[in-house]
Design a protein around this nucleic acid. Sequence first.
DNA 1: TTGCTCCTCACGTCACGTGAGGTGGC
DNA 2: TTGCTCCTCACGTCACGTGAGGTGGC
Lengths: 278, 278
Amino acid sequence: MFSIGEFARLGGVSVRTLRHYDEIGLLRPVRVDAETGYRHYSADQLGRLNRIIAMKELGLTLTQVRQLLAGISLDELQGMLLLRRAQLEQEIEANQNQLLGIEARLGYIERETAMPADDITMKNIQAMGVVVIAAPAPGWGPVNIVPVVNRARELFDELAISAHARATGPFMIFYEHDQGNDITVNLALPVAEQPAKLPAPVSYRVLPEVEAAVAVRTGPAAGIFPMVYQDLARWAEAHGYATTPPGREVWVNEIDDASQSAQQVFEIQLPFTRPGPT
Amino acid sequence: MFSIGEFARLGGVSVRTLRHYDEIGLLRPVRVDAETGYRHYSADQLGRLNRIIAMKELGLTLTQVRQLLAGISLDELQGMLLLRRAQLEQEIEANQNQLLGIEARLGYIERETAMPADDITMKNIQAMGVVVIAAPAPGWGPVNIVPVVNRARELFDELAISAHARATGPFMIFYEHDQGNDITVNLALPVAEQPAKLPAPVSYRVLPEVEAAVAVRTGPAAGIFPMVYQDLARWAEAHGYATTPPGREVWVNEIDDASQSAQQVFEIQLPFTRPGPT
DNA sequence: TTGCTCCTCACGTCACGTGAGGTGGC
DNA sequence: TTGCTCCTCACGTCACGTGAGGTGGC
C-alpha cells in the first residue's frame, strides 16, 4: 500500500493527476480512509497506471483510455487506433503547412525584404451564380483595365440590373484571355438565382468553387495591381501550391466617386490547386 | 459599413469569432450603436481581419497576433517566429512518435499477434546513489538469478544496512557482465546520501540518469523474465531507439514470503539511447 | 512548534461553439 | 404575424496546474 505521494513518484505522474483519475473514475485508489479522505494505492495498481500512461502517449483521450481498459473488442480497438492515426496524419500535415509559412516569413526577414505575405490567407470560395457584363480590354494593368470596368459599371446602372436580380455579394471582376492577346474583362454581380430574363449584353454564369490565396488591399487600383498578384503567387509557391489564374477581384466597398479611390478596398483571390497525392 | 453578419461572411469567420475579437480588443468594430449594441464594421477593417487570420494560420496565439499588429520590431517578430518554429518542430516530432506507436499496435492486430506493448512507457530515470551487494550468478534466467538474489536479501537484513542509510526507494537489481560469461547480480537500495561507513561486501555506487522503456508486470519472476525484455526491446525498436542493456528490475512491493510471489510487482527498465541528429 | 503530506474546493487555461432568453426592423 | 439578424450572459471544452485554506502525524 502506497500513499498518493509515493504512488505518484513510482508512476512518474503528479499527485494532482492521480486525484484527477480518481475523480473521473479512471483509476480509483484501492482504499480511501473514511475519516481523513487519504487515498491508498496498491503496488498492483501501478500496472493499470502504466497502461494509462502508455495509451496517453499515443495521444488517446482519457475517455478512450477508459474504454480501452474496460475491455474492448479487437475490432473496436483497431477502429480507435485507425481513427487516431488519421487524426495524427492530419495534424502532421497541418503543422508542416504552418512550418512552411513560418519559414517563408523568416526568409523574408533574413533577406531583409519587405514581407508581402503578412495578410495573405487561404480560403474556400463557394460556387456562385453571377450576372456578367463582358468587355474587351486592350492590355493588362490598371491603365487598360480601369476605364473598361468603369464603362461596364455605368452600363450595369443604366440597365437597372439590380432590379432584375437580388445581389448576394459585392461586385467583382474576373478575366479571361484566350489564345492570342485578347483580354476579356468580366464585371460580375453574385445573385441568388438565375434571373428570368436579362437584357443584352448581360448574361448569367456560374463560377466554380475554388480554393484561393486571398489578400485584402486598400487604395487606388494603380497602387495595388499587379503587385498583389506577385505576392499571392509567391505565397502559393512557398506553400507548394500551383496557381491557376485568372484571379478574381472583389470590390468590398462601394465608393461614391473616383476622388475617394484611396479608400477603395479590394479582395484579390488567386485560385490554386494542391499537389496530387501522387 | 457592414453589419457583423455581413462582415463575418466577407471574412470567412463566424459571428461569434468577431464578437470574441471585439471582447479581447483585437478587432473593435468602428461603431457600436449605443442603443441596440449593434456592431458596425468598415470595409477597411477587412484588411486587419485578414492579417489576423493569416497569423492564426501560422499557429500564433491571439495574444501574439495582437502584439504583432500593435507594431513590433523586426527583431521581436523574428524572435516570435523562431519560437513558433521550434514549437512546431517539436510538435511534429512528438506526433511522428505517436504515429510510430500507433502503427506498431495496428501491426500487432493485423498479424493477429498478442499485443506486448500495451503497458510499455518511456521514462526518464534520475541518477541515484545506491548501496549495493554484488554476487556472481552461474547464468541467466530466473533459475540462476533468483537464489542469488534471495541470498543477497538475507545478507542485507543480517548486516542491518537499513540502519546505516535512509532508503529513498524500493530494492532493485541490475546486472553486469564483463567479457567472458561472468554475470554479476547487483542488489541495490537507493539512498539519500553516501553512508559514512558500510560493512563489507556492501558498497556505495551512483547509477547514472537514463532514459528507459518501462513495463510493470505482476507475478512470479519465472512468469515474467525474460519475456518482458523481449517486449521492451521490440517497443524500443518500433520507436527507433537503440537499447543499452543491462536493464534494471525494481521490486515495487515487499512481499512476506515466497508463497505470495504471484503478487510480486516488478518494474522493469530497459535503458535506450535516441538516434543522434546526424 | 515547525515541516511535510494529505485533503477539498474552485478558478484558470485557449478560442471560441452552443444554447438560453430577449429585442428590433422588414 | 412570421423570419431573420442582432444582442448579452454563461456554460462547456481537455487534462490537469495552481493557489487558498485547513488538517493530522512526526
